[in-house]
Amino acid sequence: MAIIIQLDVMLAKRKMKLMELAELVNVTPQNLSVLKSGRAKAIRFSTLDAICAALKCNPGDILLHQTEQQKDE
């Protein structure tokens, strides 16, 4: 998929564990793991809002768009 999830990068920057984030955003660790691994098909605005609030970042810090060309490089 062209959208890359950089949740692990942000978690590392904030020195936060997935379980802690799951508790803060009120999402199950399993679902966050699905999001982190890039298997998720969509993300709700409410979830994105909660993640951004917990990690003190912007949606652009978590979601990255990558074109096919960039992917090949």
Binding site: V27, N31, L32, V34, L35, R39, A40, K41, A42, I43, R44, T47
Partner: peptide, 10 residues
């Protein structure tokens, strides 16, 4: 398929 998609919406 819809349910699967719903399950993968976080």
């Amino acid at each position: 398929k819809l349910q699967q998609e719903q399950e993968l919406t976080i």
